[in-house]
Design a protein around this nucleic acid. Structure first.
Lengths: 197, 197
DNA sequence: ATCCCATGTGTACGAGCGTACATAACGGGG
DNA sequence: CCCCGTTATGTACGCTCGTACACATGGGAT
């Protein structure tokens, strides 16, 4: 009970929120459910996060960092000598092959931006971050396209219960990258990052 | 009040549910809100749709038909002489350019399949349907890839408040289709439709 | 040492929810 | 015509929710 002066209270609430979303989905997220999961009183969650949107923003931001770590764990993605499509397909397979809970969690928070404008900047940050990472290997336009097709493939796997086909992903990614002039950073990308700032 | 014996009650409830989702999102969908929108008593919605999942399945199925009509309104998509990437990019632009409410509605119901297994077969039907439509112009594997990238592009537009760039979409689609041997229906598609049945 | 405010706690209220159920009307099959 | 199952209706129960608020507490600034 003597939990007075808990300097990491806020962080523990975010962690609890992520666990709640992972287990029960956003629909099961409430000040009360998070309070119970974090083992803090109700007033504590409402104090640190006035609205649930605030809480979701913090949770999504943290979940995004989690994905960034997965990418960072594969330095081959930055190696100019490596086979980029194959590496991307492999990383995606690893991520999707992990526990479905974590994948669903990140995607659910990400997709929630559709109806919650507060989440859109965070979702944009993520897309921008992955795009910037890939842009180092190609050009900005191609990088954006890669992010889009990665998203699309994940969506099909998650939404239609189709098993992930790494070979298929590699093939599609290869096609996007094999267009003339896309490997040296000066591809046909005549289009700016389109409000990427 | 004398609404007894209303043979189209069920259909009117589905229509009302779609309007509710369009206006307030899935989070605002309840037996009560739909009943109010359809101007029927609460007991009527619970009678025709025991669970909200039942109602969402019916709504998503109907929304999907709506999209199919948009596609059907562009016979050029089936014309072997037409520029498929350009046509696809144009149709997508028209769809995204319409009232955001309708687009959000369809996507929200579609994405809801992530956490609601009951919706997944319907989502799969949609992807399969669009895929089959495109497969007539290429091969099954390429068609699946087109659906994926279409989904990904929509997602980026809707989730990050980025304006739709038709030229960019056309370019990406072109790359996917310009791979050798993909225009005659016998492309590198060494992979089956991957549980498309 | 004292004060003050950010932080933490407990409780209550009103609203909306799914669900259950008793009852009423309708209309096709006997 | 009557009967009976499908359809329609109204109401109530128990639950969870966001919100508000009064009160406790402890540590950093003075």
């Amino acid at each position: 009970m003597p939990r007075r002066h808990d300097p990491e209270r806020r962080q523990r609430i975010i962690d609890a929120a992520i666990r709640v979303v992972g287990r029960k989905g956003i629909a099961g997220l409430s000040h009360r459910s998070v309070a119970a999961e974090a083992d803090v009183p109700l007033g504590s969650t409402t104090y640190h996060f006035t609205t649930l949107d605030d809480l979701m923003v913090a949770a999504l931001r943290q979940a995004n960092e989690g994905f960034a770590q997965v990418v960072a764990a594969h330095p081959a993605l930055s190696d100019p000598e490596a086979d980029l499509p194959a590496e991307l397909a492999r990383v995606l397979g690893e991520w999707l092959g992990g526990d479905r809970t974590g994948v669903e969690l990140e995607y659910e928070l990400y997709l929630a931006a559709l109806r919650r404008p507060a989440l859109r900047p965070v979702a944009a940050e993520w897309a921008e971050g992955v795009g910037a990472l890939l842009a180092a290997r190609t050009d900005p336009t191609t990088a954006r396209a890669l992010v889009a097709v990665l998203d699309g493939i994940c969506l099909q796997v998650l939404l239609t219960d189709t098993p992930y086909d790494e070979e298929y992903a590699r093939e599609v990614l290869t096609r996007l990258l094999s267009a003339p002039g896309t490997r040296d950073g000066r591809g046909p990308g005549s289009h700016p990052p389109a409000a990427a700032g």
